[in-house]
Amino acid sequence: MFELLGVPPQALFGQVLLGLINGSFYAILSLGLAVIFGLLNIINFTHGAQYMMGAFVAWMCLNYLGINYWVALLLAPLVVGATGIAIERLLLKRIAHVDHLYGLLLTFGLALIIQGLFRNEFGSSGLPYQIPAELRGGVNLGFMFLPWYRGWVVVASLVVCLATWFLIEKTRLGAYLRAATENPTLTQAFGINVPLLVTLTYGFGVALAGFAGVLAAPIYSVNPNMGADLIIVVFAVVVIGGMGSILGAIVTGFSLGLVEGLTKVFYPEASATVIFIIMVLVLLVRPAGLFGRAA
């Protein structure tokens, strides 16, 4: 059969699939960021720490309470989302009327504090978390061995991403949300509780990060810095997709995972930088991002 730049097609299919799997983490995380930025105009730098909290809550559920992975998958986002709601009500609300930069600094500081607290309590080298028994092993697809768990990650994140998109673009609640994004004062005048909407949106965005954290716990090292390592890439994804664009975040998340996966085959040394190169190119051509609207 054919070969592409010295790489057999089997290997290539495998890498494409792996790229999509990594893309699902980028998609969920950047989706949460996009939702938060869209409504609150806050660049949520705590997102990485909240993703980490999701993984740790799953670990705590298992080790302190004996709660298994599947329940943790529901419970952890709720817990992390609740902490997000507390942060919004106690802190973010107070700086909603001032410049973006304050929100950025506040959330960045919070991220450092949260990471520091977890490091103090659990150390820096991480905690073990096993893949749930139901999803161990895998299937041989001919061109690669696909672990069941990875397959599950793609399916779960696709479902969550599409559901979120549907919720925001196609339902009445989503319509309120979009209206509040467009003009909060007018929306409030129609009798819609905008502050509540803002709080719930932040909680929801944060819960998405927590959900991604639980998904990541069995395959990545569960340590206090796990989010800090990932969040920079996720920010680049959001910028490329267009700040605040829901569909942009999802599509860009998956496709950049793909690009990164292919770079790992053809020129592995550049796989950590390729996303930023794309970001520079996109910003040069379309400053508002691929799916963003110019301000």
Binding site: A11, Q15, L18, G19, Y220, M226, D229, G261, P268
Partner: peptide, 9 residues
């Protein structure tokens, strides 16, 4: 973070 691609190689 993700080494699966390199591991497959």
């Amino acid at each position: 973070t993700d080494f699966s691609s390199f591991l497959l190689q």
